[in-house]
């Protein structure tokens, strides 16, 4: 394999990894605070893509406006799901809320099939994303640059919010000790809601860019990326935000390079994430950046 070709694959891997990272963060942030695997998170991606699809196709809005509205709407849906399906179960046994999450996921998928139709649709992709940049012998589709750049900007923004704002500090406090966070006067419900909103908004960006990269839309489109991003969060250390980013990039880059170097295995592409998951669970169950199990003093 030539160096140019390798570079091309690497860039492709980075942009897939970016999408995984954006989506994985939602899993990890929610888990960090509510200790819940939000199974509906994958389907949120699908909703975001359909929102853009309908914004442009049905309401004839400009693409950028549809994308913006989709992000806001998806964040609201994420917050709504928390209010309706998780909040009432917060004091119930852990398994109830998990089952509720699975229920929401099935609901969204079937809602999609009934309302959006099961037939695959073509996702609109504005021309700006399709141009090709040539760097020496390497030619990259604009999207291959735009996705990582947008991702990095968003991730830096997220890290800033979490580390340097009052709300971010409150999020970190809630993820360690809800009762003591309450004693500080933190409105824990609001922080949880904000966390769902933020995670869903990032997933929406991921979902929209997913649609640009793989422009075939159908109601079950969120399942596989959802699963892989959950794995990315576990690989990085669930509950740990930089971990989710790292896990996302490892899975994305790994998946693309696997196919590039061993084309014979390309049929196993989706299995790659699961193999990594099994390896991590065997050798480092808390994930790469995960902490040791918290000790109580």
């Amino acid at each position: 394999m030539t160096f140019e070709l390798f570079l091309q694959h690497l860039i492709n891997g980075i942009s897939l990894g970016s999408l995984y990272a954006l989506i994985a963060i939602g899993y990890t942030m929610v888990y960090g605070i509510v200790r819940l695997i939000n199974f509906a998170h994958g389907d949120i991606i699908m909703l975001a893509a359909y929102f853009v699809f309908f914004g442009v196709g049905l309401f004839h809005m400009p693409w950028w406006l549809s994308a913006l509205l989709s992000i806001v709407l998806t964040a609201l849906v994420g917050m709504g799901i928390e209010k309706a399906a998780y909040k009432p179960l917060r004091d119930a046994p852990r398994i109830s809320i998990l089952i509720s999450a699975i229920g929401v996921s099935f609901f969204l998928e079937n809602f999609g099939i009934v309302v959006f139709g099961g037939r695959p649709q073509a996702f609109y992709s504005p021309k700006v994303f399709q141009g090709v940049i040539k760097l020496g012998n390497v030619s990259i589709i604009n999207l291959g640059i735009i996705i990582p750049v947008i991702t990095i900007i968003l991730l830096m923004g997220l890290v800033y919010i979490v580390n340097n704002t009052r709300t971010g500090m409150a999020m970190r406090a809630c993820s360690k000790d809800i009762d003591t966070a309450k004693l500080m006067g933190i409105d824990v419900d609001r922080i949880i809601s904000f966390t769902f909103g933020l995670g869903s908004a990032l997933a929406a960006v991921g979902g929209i860019m997913w649609g640009l990269k793989y422009p075939q839309l159908h109601p079950l489109i969120g399942i596989m990326p959802g699963l892989k991003c959950f794995i990315a969060a576990v690989v990085g250390g669930i509950g740990n935000i930089p971990g989710a980013m790292l896990g996302g990039f490892i899975l994305g880059i790994g998946e693309i390079l696997l196919v590039a170097f061993l084309p014979g295995l390309s049929g196993y592409r989706d299995a790659f994430a699961f193999i990594i998951l099994i390896l991590i669970l065997l050798f480092r169950p808390t994930g790469i950046l995960g902490e040791k199990v918290a000790e109580k003093v």
Binding site: K176, D177, T180, L183, K296, V297
Partner: peptide, 9 residues
């Protein structure tokens, strides 16, 4: 609170 419960990280 009992047992300090400072936010360790």
């Amino acid at each position: 609170p009992e047992g300090r419960r400072v936010f360790a990280d």
